[in-house]
Write a protein that binds this DNA or RNA. Structure first.
Length: 422
RNA sequence: GGAGAGGUGGCCGAGUGGUCGAAGGCGCGCCCCUGCUAAGGGCGUAUGGGUCAAAAGCCCAUCGAGGGUUCGAAUCCCUCCCUCUCCGCCA
């Protein structure tokens, strides 16, 4: 959520900022609602003040044993008028709230202009895509003979699910353990185990709701839950409604969770293989930091995700997302894209975002700033470190050999019982 | 699943219809006293919104959340959420 004060004081400025995303802000409409809201607010406050004064007068009169009948009648009339104004005020507040929850974050000044991913800016590359002496297979062909089974998954769950058995299942688990050990052991993260089912408030906190409900799975029952689409939701919500000590910052969490996405808007996209699934696993990194530190924290977090790909010897590139491609809650995002030989291109394997105060405002996640003594909003960041399924795909494809075998990267071998090849 | 007890400010904890935004304590900040490792005293110390050019001031809201009763609700009623205790069940 954007700062409501900013919305009141500089609507055209906000509109200009959001226009970078291609978001059209209805300035006149919002101003009109705000004007009415303000008038109703003032009137309601005034009536409430009068009611409070009247109620006190009743108390005073009673204490003296004086007659309070006239005051009671007056109070009743005030109450009726107040109720009417309150109804109007609540309606206007709800309208403003709906508008505010639908506004994306304001972009950081360093975000490049552009409408879609074609305008993203490549910042750096690491590793050289391997030259194959044979036509490289894709991960589906490589996986089939090792226990990657889309048909079995389809029989029980339908499209966009996978079953893995044997060495692949182990490789998948090895990746999770390797990543968590790297982040907790080398990068200073605290491992977190979190719920996979969350309430709507948690999703409003991180920005998935109310706007993107169609991307989520929900479960029946009372209370109704949503399945998390990313660990960002439960991990970032760890600090909701908290006032943190400055000494406790930065908080750095690493969590391995499954992620569930309806992929409602992705019909026909990436239908082959494991690239886009309803259920996948991810190791997620979350930073909770003092506002002035969030710029540096984004670079740090991104480097931690990069460290995973370096250790796995997977060629990748880092791109700065352009204005039109940065997600709703983020002010600035770097994507890590890993090389996939079967597609001869880089594919997203991690997305690292600085959400600044957008999520913390929705969650009321604050820290006590020693400079002011006041609780102030923290900045939140999140990034994949990295997507497990896609990392498995990248390993199969990049490390395949002419004889059909797949070499296990050195870093993973301790997690594979010393196995060098599958 | 059954029975019961609770949720109050940064923390602990009083408070069952009116002068309670809320005693007291802890913590924190400033000041005073004292001076050798300890202590004593004073004052201050929630968040959001409105009015204002701004500050002060004033007004409104907030005692888990949302409704209700009432002239008036931390206090009474209802629903929900959460915590704890005992019993049952269970990976």
């Amino acid at each position: 959520m954007l700062d409501p004060k900013l919305l009141r004081s500089d609507l055209p400025g906000v509109a200009a900022q959001l226009a970078r995303r291609g978001f059209v802000l209805d300035i006149a409409g919002i101003a009109a609602i705000e004007e009415k809201r303000k008038a109703a607010q003032i009137e309601a406050d005034r009536l409430r003040a009068e009611r409070n004064a009247n109620a006190k007068a009743v108390g005073a009169a009673r204490a003296k044993g004086a007659d309070s009948a006239a005051l009671l009648v007056h109070g009743e009339a005030l109450g009726a008028r107040l109720k009417a104004v309150d109804v109007e005020l609540e309606k206007l507040q709800a309208m403003m709230s709906d508008i505010q929850l639908g506004l994306p974050n304001i972009l950081h000044a360093s975000v490049p202009d552009g409408r879609d991913e074609s305008a993203n800016v490549e910042l750096r590359r690491w590793g050289d895509p391997r030259q194959f002496a044979f036509p490289p297979l894709d991960h589906v062909a490589l996986g089939e003979r090792r226990g990657m089974d889309f048909e079995a998954a389809g029989r029980m769950s339908g499209a966009r699910f996978v079953v893995m058995t044997g060495a692949l299942a182990r490789l998948h688990r090895a990746l999770v353990h390797f990543m968590l050990d790297l982040h907790t052991g080398e990068h200073g993260y605290r491992e977190a185990y979190v719920p996979y089912l969350v309430r709507a408030e948690a999703l409003i906190g991180t920005g998935q709701l109310p706007k993107f409900e169609q991307d989520l799975f929900s479960v029946r029952g009372d209370p109704g839950f949503f399945l998390i689409a990313t660990a960002e939701v439960p991990v970032t919500n760890l600090v909701r409604d908290q006032i943190l000590n400055p000494e406790s910052l930065p908080l750095k969490f690493a969590a391995h969770t499954p992620c569930f996405r309806s992929e409602a808007g992705a019909a026909g996209k990436d239908t082959r293989g494991m690239i886009r699934q309803h259920q996948f696993e991810k190791v997620e990194l979350v930073h909770i930091v003092q506002p002035e530190r969030s710029g540096d924290a984004l670079e740090e977090l991104t480097s931690h995700a990069e460290a995973v790909l370096k250790a796995l010897e997977l060629p990748y590139r880092v791109v700065a997302l352009c204005a039109g491609d940065v997600s709703f809650s983020s002010a600035k995002t770097y994507d890590l894209e890993v090389w996939l030989p079967s597609q001869s291109r880089y594919r997203e394997i991690s997305s690292c975002s600085n959400c600044e105060a957008f999520q913390s405002r929705r969650m009321q996640a604050r820290w006590r700033n020693p400079a002011t003594g006041k609780p102030e909003l923290v900045h939140t960041l999140n990034g994949s470190g990295v997507a497990v399924g896609r990392a498995l795909v990248a390993i199969l494809e990049n490390f395949q050999e002419a004889d059909g075998g797949v070499t296990i990267p050195q870093a993973l071998r301790p997690y594979m019982g010393g196995l060098a090849k599958i």
